[in-house]
Simulated scan of single mutants.
Amino acid sequence: MRKPNHRVRGLLSVVAAAALIGVAGCGGDDPPATRTGARPAPAPTPVWDTGPDSVAAVGDSITRGFDACSILSDCPSVSWATGSSTAVDSLAVRLLGRSRAATHSWNYAVTGARMADLPGQVAKAARRDPALVTVMAGANDACRANTASMTPVTDFRASFEKTLRTLRATRPRTEVYVASVPNLKRLWSQGRTNALGKQVWKLGICPSMLGDADDLDAAATARRAAVLTRVQEYNTVLRQVCAADRRCRFDGGAVFDYRFGTGQLSRWDWFHPSRDGQARLAEIAYRGVRRRGA
Results as ranks from 00 to 15, higher is better:
Ala148Gly: 14
Lys162Gly: 14
Val122Gln: 02
Arg157Cys: 01
Lys202Met: 13
Phe160Ile: 00
Gly197Val: 08
Leu132Arg: 04
Gln232Thr: 11
Leu132Cys: 10
Val200Pro: 09
Ala142Met: 06
Lys198Val: 15
Lys124Gln: 12
Val227His: 02
Leu210Arg: 03
Val181Ile: 08
Gln199Glu: 15
Pro152Arg: 01
Ile205Cys: 09
Gly112Ala: 11
Ala137Gln: 06
Met209Asn: 03
Ala148Cys: 07
Gln121Thr: 01
Val153Lys: 00
Pro182Glu: 12
Arg173Ala: 15
Tyr234Val: 00
Lys162Phe: 11
Asn183Gln: 13
Asn194Phe: 09
Val135Ile: 06
Lys198Phe: 13
Thr163Arg: 01
Ala116Asp: 08
Pro182His: 10
Leu167Ala: 02
Ile205Trp: 07
Ser208Cys: 02
Tyr234Gly: 00
Thr147Ser: 03
Leu210Thr: 02
Met150Ala: 08
Asp217His: 07
Gly138Ser: 03
Ala145Met: 14
Ala225Lys: 10
Asp217Ser: 07
Leu187Ala: 12
Ala145Pro: 13
Val237Pro: 02
Lys185Pro: 11
Thr170Pro: 06
Leu216Pro: 11
Asn183Trp: 10
Leu184Arg: 10
Leu203Asn: 14
Thr236Glu: 12
Leu210Gln: 01
Gln121Ser: 01
Gln232Arg: 13
Trp201Met: 07
Pro119Ile: 05
Ala226Cys: 04
Arg186Gly: 09
Asn235Ile: 05
Met115Cys: 04
Glu233Lys: 11
Asn146His: 12
Asp117Asn: 11
Arg114His: 10
Ala218Asp: 12
Val135Glu: 01
Ala218Glu: 11
Met209Trp: 02
Asp212Ala: 12
